[in-house]
């Protein structure tokens, strides 16, 4: 099954992270992608900071362009990947080894991808 992983973090907590730990974790990320290469359908992308986000919203008089992310949450999406693994347990097991989870405020959302469009027929 294919799942999209959404990697999120809390930028407001970044200052509290020991820079050396941050550096070490960052190095592990590269290895993590190498080790798990066979599980990725699409290694996705890492995104620039949330301060670069622009959002287009519904407006009564047509789409409105606004500065900032789509919601006001403290958690921001920092990247995404698509994995292809047998089941949810395999997805959970993989995500639990995501190196960034050593850092406070980090969370990864797992969402199954729609693969069978017949359910909408």
């Amino acid at each position: 099954m294919k799942y999209v992983l959404m990697f999120t973090s809390r930028p407001d907590l970044n200052a509290s992270v020991d820079p050396e730990l941050g550096q070490a974790v960052y190095k592990k990320v590269y290895e993590w992608f190498q080790e798990n290469g066979d599980k990725f359908a699409d290694s996705g992308a890492e995104l620039l900071g949330v301060e670069t986000a622009t959002t287009i919203k519904h407006g009564d008089d047509g789409p409105v362009v606004v500065d900032g992310p789509f919601n006001e949450a403290k958690e921001v999406v920092g990247g995404f990947s698509v994995i292809d693994v047998p089941d949810m347990d395999a997805a959970v097991a993989l995500v639990k080894t995501w190196p960034h989870l050593e850092l406070p405020g980090v969370a990864v959302e797992i969402r199954p991808m729609v693969e069978d469009y017949s359910q909408f027929a």
């Binding site: 099954m1 047998p86 089941d87 949810m88 347990d89 797992i110």
Partner: peptide
Amino acid sequence: VTTGIALSVPADEVLAER
């Protein structure tokens, strides 16, 4: 059904936790 939670006894590595 939709998230692919398997109807199976979990693998040994995760059995204790599950």
